[in-house]
C-alpha cells in the first residue's frame, strides 16, 4: 500500500481518481489548491503525487512541481493536463517541468492504475 497525494481543483476528478486508486488499496490524500497541496505533501510524504497542471491559474501545477523539486522532494509526479498532447504541444518531460509522467484528461482507470504502478515500482527500484 502506498500513499498517493492528488492535487486538483476539480473535486470530481479528485473523487474519481481517488476511487480508482483506493480500490487498488492505496491511501489517498487530496487537496484542491496549490497551498494545501504543498502542505499535505510536506506533512504526509506520499509515495506519489498526482498534480493538475491548471488549478486557479494556468501553470499552477508546474510551479508547485518546481517548488517540490527545489526543496529536494523527489517523490514521483504524474501531471494531469487537458490540452498538452492532444494539441501537439508536447511538453518535454524533465526539460521544462520536473515531472515523471504526463497524462491527458480524461484518463481511463486502467491507464491510471498502470501509470501509478509503473512509477511506484520505479521508486522502489531506486
Amino acid at each position: 500500500m502506498s500513499i498517493i497525494a492528488i492535487i486538483d481543483d476539480d473535486p470530481d476528478i479528485l473523487d474519481a481518481s481517488g476511487l480508482v486508486l483506493s480500490a487498488k488499496g492505496h491511501q489517498i490524500i487530496t487537496a484542491t489548491n496549490p497551498d494545501d497541496g504543498y502542505k499535505i505533501v510536506k506533512e504526509n510524504s506520499p509515495d506519489l503525487i498526482i498534480l493538475d497542471v491548471m488549478m486557479n491559474e494556468p501553470d499552477d501545477g508546474f510551479f508547485l512541481a518546481q517548488k517540490f523539486r527545489r526543496e529536494k522532494i523527489t517523490t514521483p509526479i504524474i501531471m494531469y493536463t487537458s490540452i498538452s498532447k492532444a494539441s501537439g504541444m508536447d511538453y518535454g518531460v524533465n526539460e521544462l517541468v520536473p515531472v515523471d509522467e504526463f497524462v491527458e484528461k480524461p484518463i481511463s482507470p486502467e491507464q491510471l492504475i498502470e501509470k501509478v504502478d509503473k512509477l511506484l515500482h520505479k521508486k522502489e527500484a531506486k
Binding site: 470530481d12 476528478i13 474519481a16 481518481s17 476511487l19 487537458s82 484528461k105 480524461p106 481511463s108 482507470p109
Partner: peptide, 11 residues
C-alpha cells in the same frame, strides 16, 4: 466538466 463525466462513467 466533460472529462469529469467521462471519468465517472468509466468508474
Amino acid at each position: 466538466p466533460l472529462a469529469a463525466v467521462h471519468s465517472y462513467l468509466d468508474i
